[in-house]
């Protein structure tokens, strides 16, 4: 096409005209069998006489169920905020130069991870047996007035979460190149500024995927609080089924809402990851005029 020289064509060989694809029969059979199994299972549920589907649809929008969803989401948010803030503090303690702080931090993680979440929730719910009043001097309150089921649930879930989040945050902090810290230190950043403005923002990229996992885990772990009657989604579903005996149906209703919540959380994760993926972000030429007009 370009030069005037003709390129000699390999003429001895006849060019094949058609490509015959390999028939992958194993794949076809395996796929068909798996699909058939799925259809059978779905039909089993859909046509079962023991599942009263209209009841499921009736209760999806039920006011008590919806308020349970709200409580579940609230609990998730509260426990994750507590867990993340405390977890970050514990991670920073773990990485500090102070041996006492390091010891306290690793002991906390060991201790909390050793005790089942359910036991921790029950402990906080019953804390009044151990500490009957809260406060100092004249400002005393009975503990039970402060530790409502929601507070107990938040403490139980959040303090437990802090141990796990601290490991996530620690991994994120450790992933940052030493040169970034040295550059900031040599510019005169103080240790707290260095952590807040240089290390943590960069660590976010490593921290987000596992912490989204933690959020999704938390959404479901909140169901544990049904043992202390914290009015979450599962508690609501169970209290309805204990009066109408539609146990399977209400578990379906609860599951459906858990699926919705985790799906929303996953979508949120996708956008957060995008926001912090500055290393793969295309150059933004028009987004924001970074340079003010020179006066």
């Amino acid at each position: 096409m370009t030069g005037s020289r003709t390129v000699p064509v390999a003429s001895k060989r006849r060019t094949p005209t058609e490509v015959v694809k390999l028939k992958r029969w194993g794949r076809v059979i395996g796929g068909a069998a798996a699909a058939a199994l799925v259809v059978v299972i779905i039909m089993m549920f859909a046509t079962s006489r023991n599942v009263d589907w209209p009841v499921v649809f009736d209760y999806i929008g039920n006011a008590a169920i919806l308020s349970g969803v709200v409580v579940t989401v609230e609990l998730t948010v509260l426990a994750m905020v507590l867990g993340t803030v405390l977890g970050t503090v514990i991670a920073i303690m773990r990485l500090s130069q102070n041996p006492v702080l390091r010891w306290i931090s690793s002991t906390y993680v060991w201790f909390v991870r050793s005790i089942p979440q359910l036991v921790q929730i029950l402990f906080w719910y019953n804390i009044a047996l151990f500490v009957p009043t809260l406060g100092l001097g004249p400002w005393l309150t009975p503990t039970n007035a402060v530790i409502t089921p929601i507070v107990a649930a938040t403490l139980g879930l959040g303090l437990n979460e802090a141990a796990y989040m601290s490991e996530v945050v620690r991994a994120g902090i450790l992933s940052i190149d030493k040169g970034q810290r040295e550059a900031a230190a040599s510019l005169g950043y103080r240790p707290a500024q260095l952590m807040r403005h240089i290390v943590l923002p960069q660590a976010m990229r490593v921290i987000i995927p596992p912490s989204s996992n933690e959020v999704i885990g938390m959404l479901k772990a909140t169901s544990l609080v049904s043992v202390i009657g914290a009015a979450d989604l599962l508690t609501r579903a169970q209290s309805i089924s204990s009066s109408n005996f539609k146990i399977i149906e209400l578990l379906f209703v609860a599951s459906l809402w858990y699926i919705v919540a985790t799906t929303v959380a996953s979508i949120g994760q996708h956008y957060l990851e995008k926001k912090y993926s500055w290393s793969s972000r295309p150059m933004r030429r028009s987004s924001r005029p970074v340079v003010e007009e020179q006066v």
């Binding site: 040169g179 970034q180 040295e182 550059a183 900031a184 040599s186 510019l187 960069q202 500055w278 290393s279």
Partner: peptide, 13 residues
């Protein structure tokens, strides 16, 4: 005291 590094160490975020 300024310092310029072999690996530049610009803040990558």
């Amino acid at each position: 005291i300024g310092m310029v590094f072999q690996q530049f160490n610009l803040f990558s975020h």
